[in-house]
Design a protein around this nucleic acid. Structure first.
Length: 257
DNA sequence: ATGGTCGCGCAGCGA
């Protein structure tokens, strides 16, 4: 089972690249973030033509998450699986694909330390943890994947010193990700490559991609029940090249199941 | 050199 995640930075702008990419890789499941699209405009028929069922949770101009699957897509839930107030943004969608519970997540950026949006980011991650605790167990096959907007450690940033005092590297954010791991999630790529400088996002500016100045903020977090079957992890850097690329590359995990 | 690029949508914000 091949499961992938890709922050496409507008599906409207990226559809040619996404269709091309699906034909190259034929993943079983592809999670998308930042579709920047309403549900009404989501091109479900185009994905159907490529063999994928899909679910989408979008508002229009900002955010927006989706799951595409060619191994079934059951029990979809848009937003958190709790009875609290609905999230103000469309940032998480769930579905069961081929016997694996999948969540596609677009974690708030945070903007600046101390900003209201930074508090929202930390609250959002805590709410995700409560959702997992209330609804799932680490011995069930589940993967939460997407754009976390947090580097789990210093190996995940091209120059940690350059980001001192910024979001994406702060201790509270990293503790929130560590708390998810402590509940029972495995960062499969990092487990396979313990200290490699592997990135998934490069700013469009400054030629950062060509200078290899990136961050690893897109990843799969799988329960041990699923991670035990992990056989490969990779970032498709080729998708960050060429005409009208997203600023994120797709991240793939393969499981022997 | 203290910016630099995208996307959205038509100014300027968000990333």
């Amino acid at each position: 089972m091949l499961i992938a995640t890709w922050n496409v930075n507008s599906l409207g702008a990226r559809m040619p690249r996404v269709e091309e990419w699906l034909e190259i890789w034929s993943p079983d499941v592809l999670c998308l973030q930042e579709t920047k699209m309403s549900d009404a405009k989501f091109p479900a028929l185009d994905f159907q033509r490529l063999g994928y069922d899909s679910v989408h949770h979008g508002e229009g101009r900002w955010n927006g998450v989706a799951i595409l699957s060619r191994v079934g897509i059951d029990d979809p839930v848009a937003g958190f699986e709790d009875d609290d107030e609905p999230d103000v943004d469309a940032r998480i969608i769930w579905a069961t694909c081929g016997g694996v519970r999948v969540a596609s997540v677009y974690v708030p950026n945070g903007r600046e330390l101390g900003h209201d949006h930074y508090r929202y980011k930390l609250d959002w991650l805590a709410r995700l943890r409560r959702n997992l605790e209330a609804r799932y167990r680490p011995d069930e096959p589940l993967v939460v994947l997407g754009d976390w907007n947090v580097t789990p450690g210093d190996d995940d940033v091209w120059d940690p010193a350059a980001f001192e005092g910024s979001t994406h590297v702060s201790e509270p954010e990293r503790k929130a990700i560590a708390a998810l791991r402590e509940w029972g999630l495995v960062d499969t790529l990092r487990q396979r490559y313990p200290d490699a400088g592997i990135y998934s996002y490069w700013d469009y500016r400054n030629g950062d991609f060509h200078k290899r100045r990136g961050m690893r903020i897109d990843y799969l977090l799988a329960t041990p029940a699923l991670a035990v079957a992990s056989v490969a992890d990779l970032v498709d850097r080729n998708a960050r090249k060429g005409t009208k690329p997203s600023d994120h590359a797709p991240v793939l995990g393969e499981f022997d199941r």
